[in-house]
Design a protein around this nucleic acid. Structure first.
Lengths: 203, 203
DNA sequence: CCCTAAACTAAGCAGTTGCTTAGATATAAT
DNA sequence: ATTATATCTAAGCAACTGCTTAGTTTAGGG
């Protein structure tokens, strides 16, 4: 739905023009994402979105179709925002050290005013049921798969490592960072640091 | 609230007695727990509880006070049900092998009809906000702390291991099993097996 | 066999949910 | 300025939320 109305504007440019949107869709989705991230999907109501996004319900539905539509765009925006650290991982040539850096970068990324919110994708996997929204679930799985692939690539920078072993280790590292997404909500930073250090001693 | 009415029955036994409860409170809480485990707290409505528990809303509120009260009793029942595998861990004398066995036991415990539901406590930590229900959050933390202590005891069965190192490793293992609670919802059994094997390789 | 009190049924409460609609407002091409 | 049309505000929709209550049924001591 995002930017669809802009396309419409272009398409109908020969007809009489009407009032301009008083908000930027990307800006209000950024705010919606922050809210979903803090509260989860079910614990975020359309009234709360209205306040946080600073626009009326009508505008929300005009731009994004439904609460679910707002959430899908929030997930897309989450991917954009996390891209800076996944790109850094992709560019890394340090093998497992690059992955360890990603762990620390992720913890920083997921912290807001001293509160750890975990990973929005992980939180969502934990909240929704596979059968209730298989399309979204598939999208989230693909995102996780992409990160696992980056882990794998970095692990294979060690020429002494077989692909078979590297694949198992990539799964292991995915499990550890899933854990961190939860653990960061409860544990203090020094404990998280210890966890990360031991995590990478095993590979 | 659980069993409170039974005490009342005893206390007022000299007065005229009234109708008996047509349900067993522990039995209906078992069913409530199963529902919360599958759906989470917010995604389980009192109407759903009514159907699953097989009793009227009046009876739910008479026995447990509130939806929240039903949930607290469900958490207590969860602890009872998982006790058989934590007891096994407590009795174990195999060091880290005993903990590894606990990991496998947990995965079996959290599976129902081929569906992995994760850990009810972990799911709840992931769903609720610390500030919205600090009492419950504290209770869940204590439960996790108890399991971590069991990990620590088992690790210290290795006489060559310092307490300082064992404590860090216990945190690390907690993180890994938190990860498994999430990962089990997405990954297949063979991948989970690989993850567990690598988790215990170098500790 | 009555009478008390607890447990039952089912209707209903106010508040919230996601979403829609009627009508006022603003904008840009004519 | 006129006009067409998208955007805005705000009221309102039915369905659902957690919870309560009025009224009926049932059990067991006297």
């Amino acid at each position: 739905m995002l930017f669809q109305s802009n396309c419409l504007v272009l398409f109908r440019s020969e007809e009489a023009m009407a009032r301009k949107k008083q908000y930027n869709e990307q800006e209000v989705i950024d705010k919606a994402m922050a809210l979903f991230w803090r509260n989860g999907y079910e614990n975020t109501s359309v009234r709360m979105l209205e306040k946080e996004m600073g626009i009326n319900q009508f505008s929300i539905y005009a731009s994004f179709g439904s609460k679910h539509g707002v959430f899908l765009e929030s997930i897309n925006t989450y991917k954009k925002r996390i891209k800076c650290i996944t790109d850094k991982l992709q560019a890394s040539q340090n093998g497992k050290e690059g992955i360890k850096q990603y762990f620390y970068d992720f913890l920083k990324f997921a912290r807001e005013n001293g509160v750890n919110k975990g990973c929005l994708v992980t939180n969502t996997v934990n909240e929704i049921k596979k059968e209730s929204d298989p399309v979204l679930m598939e999208e989230l799985s693909k995102f996780a798969e992409g990160i696992k692939q980056l882990f794998l690539n970095n692990l294979l920078q060690d020429k002494n490592k077989s692909t078979q072993v590297a694949k198992k280790q990539a799964n292991y590292l995915m499990n550890c960072i899933l854990g961190l997404s939860v653990a960061s909500k409860v544990y203090k930073q020094s404990e998280l640091d210890d966890i990360i250090e031991i995590t990478f001693m095993n590979i």
